[in-house]
Write a protein that binds this DNA or RNA. Structure first.
Length: 528
RNA sequence: GGCCCCUUCGUCUAGUGGCCUAGGACUCCGGCUUUUCACGCCGGCAACAGGGGUUCGAGUCCCCUAGGGGUCACCA
């Protein structure tokens, strides 16, 4: 039975790189009919675990990455919080101590630090002297009499090699002699990550440890612990990390300011900001960050787009296939095809996946996705009244493939504002209306034509406009442009006939009239 | 700095010795379509880090160099 796990620490947010690691674990478990376990690494926790964990669990649920055991679902290996498993770690420490594989160490932090500095300035690699190691109770008592407090350190071998068979990288060798005597239990009695992680992996019967490559170099000490405790070793698979856009540095939540200098990243961020701001949300720098999953959920990305993109970030089936359903990716996934080198996160390509995922949605789904944004922005009632859905449907239908994320519905704010509150884009207004020769007269003239239409719809509006143009021997653009600006306030948008039809006859007339009234009267304005 | 990992178009990648004149995708650039903006369609630019081997033949195997990255906590 394959059992994989992802072990987030409750930090309050879900990092995009973490999601990918979790995804690969999940995929591997699903592929092999195994189980995926979520374990919470809160061994070093002073924070509020509950509130810091919830966003992470919500994020996974939203993405459709479900766990068979863990917080909120329980399981045979409970508890799944490391903070509640300290007795097990304590027993492991004692076993290691008894076997002579660990020792109580009474050095003070400054003393070890000093040794380290000596080694550093000498340019040699550092190894703890074990000068304050206590292997007997008598030694311990003597140190304690000096007021010293013990930590427990691993007594690492100082010769031989450690071979890590890695499913992605092949065999990787480390020299035991270059491994530090890691502290596994702090002076305050709490146990550290490496110990806890190994104990739990064994307790949970994890068969495959699939994690980011930054853990590769600390695998030897984990193997040492596992072997010392008599555990069967899991299979290891070290994934390359997710890198910054356009670089090979590890993607980090904290470097957002730097990433914003990248044009693609900035574009995504601004796109998101526009939506969030229209919704009246404050841009909380702690969560409104394209390195975090919440960002995407907030602006209307689809889970499948993110998962599909992340799947291809460091894995490929054949170099051709790009679109996968969940079932397809589960069937196709394999660790053998994980790429060894780090992959940089490309906001533009993620957006392309999102665009495709959005295009695959049917009208009903798109509307359902969009409604919450209109509500948040206060454009429609909550709950929506019965006319709303059909109205939004017509907008989305007319928009064709212009919406990339659900929040883009807010680009069509002009369908929801009062006629006398429509905001005009200054540049377009002056270019197409106030400074365009004859535009005002033309609008007035066209308003009459519009008013005369009896059966008002996109087709009849189009017929009327074409006739209007033909009668006056105008160019299409001469009419379309000022009308568009007059009724939408914007220079660009979807089909004008659809726009006129959706808005309805009276509202269009109101808007044209208002646009005319807003033209400043000046002597050199010959259109007045 | 020690140790470890990595290195094909700008980016994600295909490639497991001849099918490679190095393929696909995203981006970008042209063109078509067009009522604007998108979509769509057609076309284009663009890569094997460098040097040595091995071989009839190397992106593919070996070695070296260079570059990039990760890790070296009483963090996870």
């Amino acid at each position: 039975m394959v059992r994989t796990r992802f072990a987030p620490s409750p930090t309050g947010y879900l990092h995009i790189g973490g999601v990918r690691t979790a995804l690969f674990n999940w995929l591997y478990a699903r592929k092999h009919g195994g189980q995926f376990i979520l374990r919470i690494d809160d061994t070093d926790q002073n924070r509020n675990v509950d509130s810091a964990l919830q966003p992470i669990l919500d994020g996974f649920r939203w993405l459709g990455i479900d766990w068979d055991e863990g917080p909120e679902v329980g399981g045979d290996c409970a508890p799944y919080f490391q903070s509640q498993r300290s007795d097990q770690y304590q027993r492991a420490v004692e076993t290691l101590l008894e076997k002579g594989l660990a020792y109580r160490d009474y050095s003070r932090t400054e003393e070890v630090q000093a040794e380290r500095e000596v080694a550093q300035s000498a340019g040699t690699s550092y190894l703890y002297s074990r000068n304050w190691m206590a292997e007997t109770d008598a030694q311990a008592a003597a140190y304690e009499a000096e007021g010293r407090v013990a930590v427990v350190r691993l007594k690492m071998p100082r010769e031989g090699t450690c071979l890590i068979p890695d499913l992605i990288r092949g065999d990787v060798e480390f020299q035991w002699a270059s491994e530090q005597d890691m502290v596994i239990q702090k002076s305050n009695g709490s146990c550290l990550y490496h110990l806890a992680s190994v104990v739990d992996d064994a307790a949970f019967a994890i068969t495959h440890v699939i994690r980011a490559e930054e853990h590769l170099s600390n695998t030897p000490r984990q193997i040492f612990i596992a072997q010392g405790l008599g555990y069967d070793l899991p299979q290891y698979a070290h994934l390359p990390y997710v890198a910054e856009p356009g670089s090979k540095n590890k993607l980090s939540k904290r470097k957002i300011a730097k990433y914003l200098k990248n044009p693609d990243f900035l574009k995504l961020y601004e796109h998101g900001s526009r939506i969030a701001t229209t919704c009246g949300n404050e841009l909380d720098p702690e969560t409104f960050n394209p390195v975090l999953v919440d960002f995407y959920r907030d602006i209307g990305f689809l889970p499948n787009a993110i998962v599909n993109y992340l799947l291809l970030l460091g894995w490929s089936l054949d170099g051709e296939t790009e679109d996968f359903t969940r079932d397809e990716m589960i069937r196709a996934f394999s660790l053998e095809r994980v790429v060894k080198s780090p992959a940089s996160f490309d906001p533009t390509k993620l957006t392309a996946f999102q665009q495709r995922a959005m295009d695959q949605l049917d009208l009903k789904q798109k509307t359902a996705q969009s409604l919450p944004y209109l509500q948040q922005a206060g454009f429609i009632d909550t709950p929506p009244n019965c006319d709303t859905a059909p109205y939004v449907n017509s907008i989305i239908t007319a928009s064709e493939q212009r919406m990339t994320v659900a929040g883009d519905i807010l680009d069509y704010a002009h369908f929801f504002t009062d006629d006398n509150a429509l905001v005009y884009d200054d540049k377009s207004f002056s270019k197409r209306i106030s400074n365009a020769n004859g535009a005002v007269e033309l609008l007035r003239d066209f308003a009459n034509t519009l008013a005369a239409i009896e059966s008002y719809n996109a087709a009849s509006v189009e017929g009327a406009m074409r006739q209007f143009i033909a009668d006056r021997e105008l160019k299409f653009g001469q009419v379309v442009q000022p009308v568009r600006v007059a009724i939408t306030g914007k220079p660009a948008g979807f089909g004008l006939f659809d726009t006129l039809a959706i808005l309805g006859q009276q509202r269009c007339l109101n808007r044209i009239e208002r646009a005319i009234s807003l033209v400043p009267i000046s002597p050199d304005n010959d259109s007045a």
